[in-house]
Amino acid sequence: MNDDAKNAGQAGTSFEARLAAARTRQGLDPKPLDISKGDTKGPSPMSVGLRVGVELLSALIVGASLGYWLDRWLHTSPMLLSLFVLLGGAGGIANVWRLLGPKPPAH
């Protein structure tokens, strides 16, 4: 009580902060996210890890098979395969970034 009365005279920001803290204490607000990983609502580290693995692997598969078929088509045997494996790896990284990186602001 005494503490509250002492703080009451302070600026509005302090009140906002204390209100937010009280709301969090009462469970009225969702808990603030401790890691800045976008919306980490729910998924466990295990499932995130699995998803990242699948994204990396599938992009690599697509890149490698694309390079392989282009090579067979254009008779440029190892050149396009080696290029597209690298591009596939980059595509995998792009997928993971899209999955875990900062989200673009909604419009």
Partner: peptide, 13 residues
């Protein structure tokens, strides 16, 4: 190319 591969990797993943 990276974006196209990324798009094509969706059904695979």
């Amino acid at each position: 190319p990276v974006e196209i591969i990324s798009y094509l990797s969706r059904p695979v993943s």
